[in-house]
Write a protein that binds this DNA or RNA. Structure first.
Lengths: 343, 343
DNA sequence: AAGGCCATCGCAAACGTTTGCGGTCTTTGC
DNA sequence: GCAAAGACCGCAAACGTTTGCGATGGCCTT
């Protein structure tokens, strides 16, 4: 009885009394190109099937310098927003025959740098990365196209890297306008991680909407420093204490929103009775919250799929990417967390 | 200017005028064992550092038959329950120097089988798998210990495979008892995927609790066939139509719960005013739902960590696992979705 | 002076592929 | 009958490691 080790080219070759070369070529569909008779080709294919042969990815990778794997680098996979993206990336990649290495940078640039090196070491054929987004120094060296990659969710305006992101600017503008249209004038904004493109764009949309409606943005109404829940909680508390007359809050992420809600509950404020809330990231549960939440839905399903498509285009054209990037529209989902008021 | 290709052992060897053998041994800490002088050892280490050498995982894997990678197989990574597990698995694995291949089986046994083959092909050193759980045929052949693995969330009583799961039985029993204690007698149960261990155990806990309190379980009060949201919705509708007098619902997953809530909303029933609800899986948002949800919290953080620990114990001891498996306690988190009634 | 024994290191094979050059036959053309 | 042309296939190197055997010197011992 043979060991349970996988069959190799050699095994097939020996069984058929031919060389590994021929076996390899036949299996790679190069029979015609190398003048291998139909008979042997079929024999090889049959034997391979019978023995359940599949080429060793390591050996093949070593020789070909392609691993048929990609890296997926995410700031926090437990965030349902990213989890959804990850799911679509995995599905799309698998459909192309690629496997994906998952790395969670835990919102730490330090860990992101390490992960990047690690994935590179692993010789992944490409990378889709949702960067922490505060620093881009470690991404600059990736611009040379030596390693195909696409950036998602957060991007860097001054880097020549393909990206796919939401139209955060318009999304925030629409949301803010929605509030203004319903009579709100003093609108607070609980923001996320400063310096990241989504945060920057969203705040910009928020301010533009205000100005467009003749309301002067008040910097004191914008607070926050991370996309996490705790941040939402803390800064809602602070905002409520510092500024009076706030009638609505724009929360810039789903986790922030949960923090906001906690703070409001503690303060005994009801949504939307006492205060209106609108937030980024639609999640399955948003409709069932106390006061079903009006949200800015991002199409993260497509984001994952498109990211992979963009990536494979690079991989197949070996390198250079031309386009600027892709911006996906958002969608305002109106529910019941915004009240119409008369100022 | 050299190509931007990574430095190899040969490069270091050439630079120092020694053999690759010596370089390899020095880098692997076998200098002493093979009698390599302190001087050369240090020279090698220094050169390696300077050139930013790191061994090619492919070549190493080919030679050693170890890839320093594990596979993580999940039915649905976009489910926050599994996402949280994935996060902890990734973190724990990375801490041990392992990378993780992510596979999403999309709750399909078919895809699970394929993924298993794929990961095996990739020569992962181990596997942590949350199986779909309906069929175990493809897992049986893994019992021989040829590939270390640990099963999480769902397990198979008749398979000798290490597992770590929640104490679903007790969890459901406590939840049901909680309802009974508050006066509920007609308690519906919206279940998940039939045939899976969590579902079986939870239903068993539900029934036991009823019997323990002198209530005869009514099979017509148990319905459902998947852990998804749609299932929760549909079967709540059906239950409400079929059975009268239901005062409480036990929902066996977080997604099911969302479906339940949708159905109740459509029927104009309020929680907990008209009907009480209690559910499995605590999620960050549960506290902010309309009627903050009383839940059975599972410690999926530890589940991921322990799974990895168990896995590495197998990997290091090359093979045989002795223990039976690990059962993590659940915790009932009492909020406001259960009303006290007087039957 | 010869043998033995350390201390230090290198050769070459092996892991499983792919691929640039060939090398044999058989057939064909004249 | 003989060369040229296909048709069909194999050798061996290469990818970057690790490792079983030695190999080479120098120094000590007797």
């Amino acid at each position: 009885m043979k060991q349970s080790s996988r069959p190799t080219l050699k095994a097939i070759a020996k069984q058929l009394g031919i060389s590994v070369t021929t076996v390899s070529r036949a299996l790679n569909g190069k029979a015609e190109a190398y003048g291998i008779s139909k008979k042997t080709e079929e024999a090889v294919l049959r034997a391979a099937k019978e023995m359940h042969f599949s080429p060793d990815p390591l050996a093949r990778g070593l020789r070909l310098n392609r691993t048929l794997s990609i890296g997926l680098l995410i700031p926090d996979i437990s965030n349902p927003y990213f989890a959804e993206i990850a799911r679509n990336v995995e599905m799309a990649a698998r459909r192309e025959g690629y496997s994906v290495f998952l790395c969670d940078s835990q919102e730490s640039t330090q860990l992101e740098v390490e992960s990047l090196a690690l994935l590179r070491d692993r010789k992944v054929d490409g990378l889709v990365i949702a960067p922490v987004g505060q620093s881009a120094a470690h991404l600059e060296e990736l611009q040379d196209g030596s390693l195909p990659l696409v950036v998602i969710d957060r991007y860097f305006p001054n880097l020549k890297l393909p990206y796919v992101v939401s139209d955060n600017y318009r999304g925030a503008m629409e949301a803010t306008s929605h509030l203004i249209d319903r009579g709100h004038r003093t609108i607070a904004c609980v923001q996320g991680l400063a310096g990241t493109s989504p945060n920057r764009e969203r705040v910009r949309g928020y301010r533009t909407a205000l100005k467009d409606h003749g309301i002067e943005p008040d910097d004191a109404l914008v607070a926050g420093s991370s996309f996490g829940q705790e941040n939402g909680y803390v800064h809602t508390k602070l905002l409520l204490g510092k500024k009076k007359g706030i009638t609505a809050i724009l929360a810039l992420s789903n986790l922030i929103t949960l923090g906001v809600l906690r703070a409001l509950a503690e303060e005994g404020l009801s949504v939307p009775g006492d205060i209106s809330v609108i937030c980024f990231d639609d999640q399955p549960y948003c409709a069932y919250l106390n006061a079903p939440m009006t949200t800015v839905d991002q199409d993260n399903e497509r984001m994952g799929q498109i990211a992979v498509r963009l990536l494979f285009e690079q991989i197949q054209s070996r390198g250079r990417f031309s386009g600027e990037g892709i911006v996906l529209p958002t969608r305002l989902i109106e529910r019941a967390s915004v009240r119409r008021i008369t100022p």
